[in-house]
Computed example of a mutant assay.
Amino acid sequence: MSRLANRAEVIKLARALAVEPEALQYLHGLPSDAVAQLRSAISDVIHDEQRAPLGLLAAVARWLPAWVSALCARSWFGAPMTARLASELPAWRVADVAGYLDAAFLADVAVDLDPRCAREVLQLMAAKKIMAISHVLLKRDDFVTLGRFVALLPDAALSEVAASIDDEGDLLQVLFFIEARYRIDHIVRLMPAERLQRAVLIVADESRRELWPSVLALMTHAGYGLKRELGDLAAEQGDAVLSAIIETVQQEDLWEDVLPVVVCLSPDVQRQVVNLPALQRADVLEKIIAATQYRQLWSAMLCLAEAMNDSGREALARVIEQTDETLLAQAAYAALLRSQWRTLLDIVRRLSSARQHDCHEVLAHYLPTLDRETAGYLQALLNEYGIEAAPESTPEPAQ
């Protein structure tokens, strides 16, 4: 689950329910898709309750001249009812009526319009009208509504809208609330490279700290290639920028979002990140381990540990020393899946004898299930790193 995606969906749901996001804090533990489905279900229930009268209005609106329908929408229906009525009409009819409505009113309609019925309408609307509506929403700082529709725009309109957003911070907030996250890579590729660089550098601007999670959301939701590109771009700015990102992730408790991003970085940048003093602090590693265990991210964690220097592995071992044996079991399973035994055992050898014995006991359950060659390899590694089974306890002599 992505905490950042969940945060965006909770804000959207709060907007739909006309409540403050703080009132929905109990939803922060849910997957973002579940919150999005809840929002869609609520919208469907409201729409179904009004389907009968809306059907009658839609039947009339189909035959009225477009300018008359626009006059009715503006003078009598209002924006919320017009938005619901639009879902009952053919897309071509909605686009015709929209041509007679001003951008401010259409921006009001967009707040309540269901994106699921808007794709074809946006394809039919004039680009100038789309730009005008976007400008109204930008002036209102209504990034939620822009984010719900921006992924549905044709590429030409999308490029124009992106170019019209002067502030990279505004662009980041629109992408934070984007409805179709799979389109993020495509949208970003339509932007000039220098804009992308300025967007990433916002994490080095202390005066814009409130936007830092939006930068991280962009990195989190991007595809593998773009993750690497953004990470490498951030690394080029020096350790100060990377340390600022680590500090933001730590404060916002976003390690479960960011760990998979670090794994996607190029090997040199990955080593640069995991060996920063800011990441090797005990409090940071404690949160990283907590996120790793909670979200079963041990394969990612072992990839990062592989790039750590000795001081980083020592710091990681000190944190693992304070955890229970279930963590070692999860780590061992991940090492088995990805053949990361050397990385895991190099950390285990730095633990106390008691914890090493715990690890040996966990691995003893795997040895009989492995083929002879793999079992021999694992046993040789245990011997190499000096990780032995607990000595047999000597029974007390009878009194």
Results as ranks from 00 to 15, higher is better:
269 V>N: 07
318 R>Y: 11
238 G>H: 01
82 T>N: 05
215 V>T: 07
355 R>M: 01
322 Q>K: 15
227 K>M: 00
315 A>Q: 08
206 E>K: 14
8 A>L: 07
6 N>K: 13
84 R>L: 04
360 H>A: 11
45 V>W: 14
204 A>L: 06
109 V>L: 01
263 V>E: 12
228 R>D: 07
66 A>K: 05
28 H>C: 11
271 R>T: 12
267 P>N: 04
312 G>H: 00
219 M>H: 03
201 L>K: 13
5 A>P: 07
50 Q>Y: 14
330 Q>A: 15
13 L>P: 04
9 E>H: 08
274 V>H: 01
364 A>I: 00
179 E>T: 09
211 L>M: 05
86 A>P: 04
197 Q>V: 10
364 A>E: 04
45 V>Q: 12
320 I>W: 07
126 A>Q: 14
85 L>G: 00
49 E>T: 12
26 Y>H: 14
144 V>E: 10
279 L>R: 10
363 L>Q: 03
119 R>G: 01
288 I>K: 11
172 L>H: 05
44 D>I: 08
371 D>E: 06
394 T>N: 10
58 A>E: 02
241 V>C: 03
151 A>Y: 03
314 E>N: 14
216 L>G: 08
312 G>C: 06
304 L>V: 02
393 S>Q: 15
238 G>F: 00
72 C>A: 15
161 V>H: 09
256 E>I: 10
242 L>Y: 02
330 Q>L: 09
290 A>M: 13
9 E>N: 04
187 I>H: 08
266 S>E: 10
93 R>I: 06
103 A>E: 10
370 L>G: 01
160 E>M: 12
350 R>L: 10
346 D>P: 00
281 R>D: 10
179 E>K: 13
127 A>Y: 13
326 T>D: 11
305 A>R: 07
324 D>C: 06
262 V>L: 12
168 E>T: 09
116 R>V: 12
210 E>A: 15
355 R>K: 04
236 E>T: 08
349 R>P: 00
81 M>F: 07
99 G>P: 04
185 D>Q: 03
57 L>M: 09
274 V>K: 02
156 A>P: 09
399 Q>T: 13
194 E>T: 14
63 W>G: 11
259 L>A: 07
178 I>V: 11
147 G>W: 06
228 R>P: 01
159 S>E: 13
172 L>T: 07
242 L>Q: 03
